[in-house]
Amino acid sequence: MFVSLALSAALAAEGAVPVKPKPVFGFSRVDILSEDPGFWINDELPNILAYPLRPTLRFVMQVKVVWSTPIRGLTVGTSISSQSVHYERNIFGFESVTVGAGLQTALLLPRGLWVDVAWHRGPYRLALGLSTISDASWGNLRWDSWRFLPTVGVGIGLPDAPKTED
């Protein structure tokens, strides 16, 4: 530790830019509330008192594990309900605010897209977005019915997991 501190100090003294660790494929965070497909917060939550079991099961199914990739800002997410590829980057010069877009699939069949704005603080990520999703499935290969849903994403990750584009 002292060696690395000394090395960093020496490099800083010479005006060198500290090298950030290269992003790799690995665990990034868990989205307790995932933005895709967005059904839970729009459809299930308002009906939770009418029949609690389905919203509860669907809540569990939408919890998403998000994985970082070698491309900074690009993540892959997997839940029972959905799989996704999402890219986000900083905006307005703010490190803690990102804008992003993603593709969502069901059993790897593309069925929708979403865009979002996210706020990052430490291991936490809160996102607001807009999802557009079709009713396509492997049993119904049609993309002729689309819904536009506002989405909310709440994620908790590793403190040092690479998240955003510089």
């Binding site: 669907r58 309900s81 069901a106 059993l107 069949l109 499935s137 049993g139 119904n140």
Partner: peptide, 17 residues
């Protein structure tokens, strides 16, 4: 059937069609 719907392997609309 709930699981089929969730995974996209079952679709009542497709069945009706």
């Amino acid at each position: 059937a709930l699981m089929e719907l969730e995974l996209g392997t079952g679709d009542p609309v497709a069945a009706a069609r």
